[in-house]
Amino acid sequence: MTKPRLLWVNVTFFTVSTLMALVAAPLWGYFHGFETWQWLTLIVLFSYCNLSITAGYHRLWSHKTYQAHPALRWLFALGGALAIQNSVIHWSSDHRVHHRHVDDNKVDPYSAGRGFWFSHIGWMLREYQPDRYDDYGNVRDLQKDPVVAFQHKHYLALTLVMNFGIPLLLGMVFGDVIGALLLVGFVRIFLTHHTTFFINSLAHIWGKRTYSDKHTARDNGFLALLTFGEGYHNFHHSFENDYRNGIRWFDYDPTKWLIKGASLLGLAQGLRKTPEELIVKARLTRQLEETKVRAQAKGLCFNELHRHYEETLAAAQHYYQLRKRWLQMKKAKLMQSVEALELRRQLEEMGEKFRQMQSHWQQLRLQLA
């Protein structure tokens, strides 16, 4: 079978940027050194690039998990050009296909089923799907956004201005143009690219399938540190319309914090969250599946496990129904009514029962593990 033709522009760009970041920059640093302002600028622009991809390209435009003020959309559009990951329209089109056909080696643009190299960078080095970008039919909604349309039309110019203009300007101001181009330019691009690419590659092969085994996406807290919160990838593929990836308070998800902070400032609205009862159900169901497999392998009976699963799930549904009613009363400022006080008592009792059942559930799982 003949391999698709090489995309020489991409091959050349990745080769040159890698050599400049891994060879030229260390050599310049060894012989000339880098100043504090260069390191600080690298960190700031690296963070800006990655957050423009995670909060902008990914959660705002690809999945529409919230709406953003035009000022925020412009900020993300320019950051995306700085990140050199193609236009919002092109990136989002690929990503929507990825989610719709995840792990389908024939359709998924960066299917993890084709191996680490392919899903990480190989899919961009050859023309695997040349006909897919004729009309961008799956992102017609994004083409109506004037910010997105402008960025797509002028993407190359924006990319050149952002990636050469900023380092050159800083270099001239502080007196080290070459050092700025190497560290703030090429090293930043290298780090931005490969930490983002990890979401397509490592996040589909390394970690735990917490909520579903119907796709290869994994949850990995360490990858979340590298990808600004995108490492909780099994959750994302299970609940892709949620603006969060890390749902627990201690989960490292700066993208989530940025979106929430923007909403408090009036720059974002309509933040979408998956109902908690659906998340609990998915997690319990996945735990049931995993434990049954281990119990069967050991020849153990898991009837009690299945019974307790049903009871815990029923308790969860009852608890969240009560909480939903309580929140409705709280919003209507009826907390002091007789009905509300009784509902609060029931909610507290049911919450305690649910916590006890969850604890028993975990103990039972450990016994059968």
Rank of each mutant, 00 (worst) to 15 (best):
Y252G: 00
Y232D: 01
P4Q: 09
K64P: 00
G113H: 05
S17D: 07
K144S: 13
I43G: 09
N241F: 12
W326S: 10
W206E: 11
G185L: 03
K281R: 15
V177M: 09
T192K: 06
Q296K: 15
A316G: 10
F198V: 08
L364F: 12
L225Q: 05
R345F: 04
A77W: 01
N105Y: 01
S92C: 15
S111D: 11
K292W: 02
R126W: 13
Y155P: 08
H318A: 08
R132L: 12
G171S: 12
F164Y: 13
G56D: 09
T15A: 15
F222G: 06
D131P: 02
R323E: 09
L75W: 13
E230A: 06
P4C: 11
R344G: 07
L368I: 14
L168P: 00
G185K: 11
I189P: 00
H63V: 03
S111W: 04
E35W: 07
Q358A: 04
Y57P: 01
E35M: 11
M162N: 11
I121N: 01
H204P: 04
R244Q: 14
S119V: 04
H237W: 08
G299E: 07
Q296Y: 08
R248I: 00
H90E: 13
V177N: 00
D134T: 15
H236M: 03
W61N: 05
T255N: 05
Y309Q: 04
W257S: 03
Q328Y: 08
R218H: 12
E277G: 07
M20C: 14
G299M: 04
V16M: 12
Y243I: 00
Q67Y: 07
S119D: 01
V161T: 09
V44G: 04
W39Q: 10
R323C: 02
R365M: 14
D141Y: 07
I205F: 11
L223E: 00
A71R: 06
Q85F: 00
L202Q: 10
L183E: 02
R188F: 06
H237T: 07
L322T: 03
H194T: 02
M124A: 11
R286S: 07
Y66H: 14
A81M: 02
P275I: 02
K292E: 15
H58E: 07
Y243F: 15
E240C: 02
M20T: 13
G231D: 05
R96K: 11
S93K: 05
P130S: 13
H308S: 03
F235H: 04
A340Q: 09
R5G: 15
R218K: 15
Y48V: 02
V11C: 14
A55E: 04
T54D: 08
M172Y: 10
H233A: 10
G137E: 14
K353Q: 13
L191N: 03
L265R: 03
A157F: 09
Q358G: 12
N303P: 06
K153W: 04
L202S: 14
L82W: 05
E349Q: 14
L343C: 10
H236S: 01
N50Y: 00
T216K: 13
